[in-house]
């Protein structure tokens, strides 16, 4: 396969498992912080674990903020995972307020504390994803999923897009029903980790690659 897959490296988070999932599907992904390499990619993935503000600072310092916008404007497929979804929004509540990439208008909020100590923060568990309206998953990477499928989540913050149009999946934790996947044109992202959700999760990557073949 000659497609060029770039996993965006901004010195935070675990890139290894995303690369493993790509390799399993026959794609030899490059881990890179180089804006030029990103712009030359056929597929780009923005993973991430860690703090929102540090991530934005690092993306900025590598010149990746501008490059990500340029890449997305070119119409090529872009996928965010976990923090990589949250960074797509306008801003995060973390540490007061931090500006995000503003590709999906909306904010990133923290799960409220649970006085009964049942719904701990971070949420670390397999949880279910649901389709916000019938047929929404058709022709998306989630077309291989059924409402109620289990995916692996690790996060303290969640995205709240202004428009329901961009909400591709919903999940409930405690009293919070939140957006667990987004899609806007060529931009797709999941709050859960498909690469850590068994072979069923890896199938989501496969769909994303297949649907975006040139």
């Amino acid at each position: 396969m000659n497609s060029k897959v770039v996993i965006i490296d901004y010195q935070l988070g675990n890139l290894f498992s995303v690369k493993q999932a790509c390799e399993y599907l026959g794609y030899d992904a490059i881990i890179s912080s180089n804006p030029e390499e990103l712009l030359a990619a056929d597929y780009a993935i923005l993973p991430g674990v860690g703090a929102f503000n540090d991530s934005m600072k690092n993306l900025e310092s590598f010149g990746l903020v501008k490059a990500i916008h340029q890449y997305i404007n070119s119409g090529k497929p872009f996928m965010g995972v976990c923090l990589g979804l949250q960074l797509l929004l306008t801003e995060s509540e973390e540490f007061g307020s931090t500006k995000g990439l503003n590709i999906i208008p909306g904010i990133v909020k923290k799960f409220p504390p649970d006085i009964n100590h049942e719904f701990k923060v971070p949420q670390i568990q397999w949880n279910q994803i649901f389709e916000p309206s019938d047929g929404k998953w058709q022709n998306t990477a989630l077309c291989v999923c059924k409402p109620g499928d289990y995916m692996y989540f690790v996060h303290s913050f969640y995205a709240q897009p202004d428009s329901e149009d961009y909400v591709l999946a919903k999940t409930t934790y405690g009293g919070t029903s939140y957006c667990s996947s987004v899609q806007r044109a060529n931009v797709f992202a999941t709050q859960f980790h498909p690469e850590k959700s068994g072979l069923h999760g890896v199938e989501i990557y496969k769909q994303w690659f297949d649907q975006n073949k040139k």
Partner: peptide, 8 residues
Amino acid sequence: SLKFGSST
């Protein structure tokens, strides 16, 4: 936890 994220 600051460097790698609390959840790590």
